[in-house]
Design a protein around this nucleic acid. Structure first.
Lengths: 224, 224
DNA sequence: CTTTCTTTCTGAACACGTTCAAAACAACGC
DNA sequence: GCGTTGTTTTGAACGTGTTCAGAAAGAAAG
């Protein structure tokens, strides 16, 4: 965030640096883009970029932040357009993929550090907790709105589980090199179907022991 | 691999570089360890390390390679010591965790690039295909030896699925900061139980449609 | 206008991974 | 011994992300 840089001139410089960076990330990827490239394109000295962003990673972090904000209305719209748990799940994730589509190259930086929950850019890190919370809230809303009977014991874990599921799809999409990411499309379709099915099955009395085990697993993995 | 460096002197230098590197990785982590540190500790010039290893990553790759080889007899022994699918699954994974225990710090470099199947160090990359194949073969052996009825359609996918499962446990273990990695221990226990249960359930006629869907998902994710 | 203080910007410098031309060494034929 | 050929080792140099002392540009006060 070009933040606490309050004068209009500074605001403009910050924007120019961010835009230059994202342009270059898109064109040639995160790794191939040099801080010197970014500065040159933004017509400032190398060090200036560091006045606005404490590190190269921070530019991507800012991109995440802004993406999250910009996507809110689109998600809202998509959920209004569509009913039912399965369709909404798919719609929500589809909105994200569509939004990120032009920046798939930028997201590849996720692969570099995404698995390390200590790294600032990881979707599991404390640094991204705010974004994560906003995202999870949507899954919570989908669940309460869908009118489906959800077992009491499972309910509090579900937003997190669905968020994690979504994260998996996004990871796969970033990696997916099939034409037009066709494999991701198929995965998204079948996987949301399966999730909806499992959720329906979860409240059957017969499933109680299985559900209890699943909850234990979730608690082991999710608990701090 | 200090390879094709054939004279005894060269062999010795290569070893010294590898050992110095692993010592330092253990002590202060992969990132905090400098190639210059490694060279200094091995009492060679900076460039010498690059005569034996094309990159810093390659040292870790060699470590993987050697680890894999060294673990073969231990795995064999563990599987002879124990019967039944569940116990053997747990035993196999436990052998790996025990073996890697002194080098948890080294494995943290997995987090940095493990999720990117193009990165040489990723367990999903072409570079690690040989190790992966060896590992998967063990799971195949466990499956055929356990005498359990495995559905024909599912069978060819299972070694890969179990290997992926194992990879998940290892990832979790690397991240796990609970005392003595107690959470991983609980996860391993409960998760292997669950896997064994699911595998037993998978051949019930009632489960056929669910199994077919699962196989489709597996094929989407696993296919080149 | 001059002085002082803050914000914005500069470019040289640092440590890192990596490369490379050339030095040192070893092995062999003479 | 000497020269030739191939292996091993060196250390300076490059490009990277990042830091930092201070220059430049504004803004506020006298």
């Amino acid at each position: 965030m070009p933040s606490a840089k309050n004068t209009p001139k500074a605001e403009e410089t910050g924007r120019r640096i961010l835009d230059s960076a994202l342009d270059l990330f898109r064109e040639q990827g995160f790794d191939a883009t040099t801080m010197r490239d970014i500065a040159r394109k933004a017509e400032v000295a190398t060090g200036a970029a560091y006045y606005y962003y404490p590190a190269k990673d921070a530019i991507v972090a800012d991109f995440y932040q802004r993406s999250c904000e910009e996507m809110q209305p689109r998600i809202e719209a998509a959920l209004n357009r569509v009913k039912g748990l399965e369709a909404r799940l798919r719609a929500l994730i589809a909105v994200k993929l569509a939004y990120f589509e032009p920046n798939r190259g930028v997201l590849r930086s996720l692969l570099r550090n995404g698995a390390d929950p200590r790294h600032p850019l990881s979707p599991f890190s404390p640094d991204t907790a705010a974004i994560r919370a906003i995202d999870m809230a949507w899954f919570g809303r989908i669940l309460t709105d869908c009118g489906m009977r959800i077992p009491r014991d499972l309910e509090p874990h579900l937003p997190g589980v669905l968020w994690f599921f979504q994260m998996g799809v996004i990871f796969f999409w970033v990696i997916d090199d099939s034409p037009k990411q066709a494999r991701t499309a198929r995965l998204l379709d079948l996987a949301t179907k399966s999730v909806a099915f499992l959720l329906r099955a979860a409240s059957l009395p017969l499933m109680r022991p299985l559900r209890k085990t699943a909850i234990q697993l979730i608690e082991i993995v999710a608990h701090p």
